[in-house]
Amino acid sequence: MPFEDSITFGSSGLERAAHLRMDPEAMARLVADPAARAIAFWRAKPAVSPEGLVKLPLDHPVLEAATEAPIFLGLDKAGPRFAYDLSGWQPVEEVGELDSFLDRSEQQHPDLPEGHLFKELRGVMTLLTRREAELAAAARQLLEWHRTHGFCSMCGVKSDQADAGWQRLCPSCGRRHFPRTDPVVIMLITRGNKVLVGRSPGWPERMYSLLAGFVEPGETLEGAVRREVYEEAGVRVGPVRYIASQPWPYPASLMMGCAGEAVSDAITVDPVEIEDARWMGREEMIDVFAGTHPEMREPRKGAIAHSLLSAWLRDEAR
């Protein structure tokens, strides 16, 4: 199958129907459609069940806790899809535990059936269908943008949600604000039969991944790859090519997977950027994916780093 089809949060072919967002009459018809369904979020965590993403009819009582109008996500074959933010609801108690890397707590809303829980998206992303993952990623990113961009950056007045949730409009100066996406390069850097991996401070024990970093203003993807690898690991990179991308809604990144050929071996770690970096041979990486390597565990499934490394092991990272 095409490489991009293996990417979590990749396009599932959802009809986003952007032409309907500015049409109030069309939106009213979609909201009234008996086939319309909502996905509910609580503080950036979607409601999920053992069957996948929970999809609620728009008249479900749990949605009464929403403080903002729903966001129109698009047209699924089964009907319109919307996202609701229920962050104003206060759970009686939390189940699970919190840590610095992943929120493992789960919340049970009294109006939802047993087992329908709000869970951290990173913990369930590989359990979702491609369509569910695309819906969840778009909803999470948009809801976080609304949460953090509620005031006009031109005049400071509180702005209003507009165009079915895809814009904010300032009632004072009329400025329109649009959701942002931050470009990030993630690099499969190889030299001969080895690949460069690194880890950030605070990551779980034995967790390594490919190096990554934000693209700076006025910079090409190729330039960002070479700069980030040199800044973090002191390794010079020659030819660079693009492979595939992944929306990464934590909170608003677009991970652009690139492959690069290193022209130097020596590693000089910048401790401000990363904690460690090392070259891993193909045989070592096979052990990593088999779960038998003593110093590195398999990269997190669902992340593009896992897909890139897996493709490299199969000699398909082209």
Rank of each mutant, 00 (worst) to 15 (best):
A137F: 01
A224R: 11
S11R: 15
L121C: 10
Q108W: 11
L117H: 10
C258G: 10
Q108Y: 09
A137Y: 07
R199L: 07
A138W: 02
E51C: 09
I71D: 03
W203V: 01
H116T: 15
G115F: 08
R175N: 14
E93H: 06
F289R: 02
E295Y: 11
E232I: 02
R318E: 15
K301F: 15
M207G: 00
I274W: 01
A40H: 02
S209L: 07
E106M: 12
E275W: 12
A47N: 01
H116S: 09
G198L: 00
F214K: 14
C258K: 07
L63S: 05
G192E: 04
L196H: 02
H306F: 15
H177P: 02
D160F: 08
L20R: 08
L254E: 15
R37F: 04
S105C: 11
D315H: 05
A139H: 07
P271D: 08
H19F: 08
A259L: 12
M187A: 10
A244T: 14
R81W: 00
G223D: 13
P247V: 05
Q90T: 06
L73S: 06
R180L: 11
R297Q: 08
C155V: 04
K194S: 15
P61G: 07
E120P: 10
S49W: 11
G13E: 07
T148F: 15
L58S: 04
D103K: 09
T67F: 01
M255N: 15
S159G: 12
C173S: 07
V31N: 00
H177K: 06
L127S: 14
L309V: 03
S307K: 04
S153D: 13
M207K: 09
A303R: 15
K55G: 00
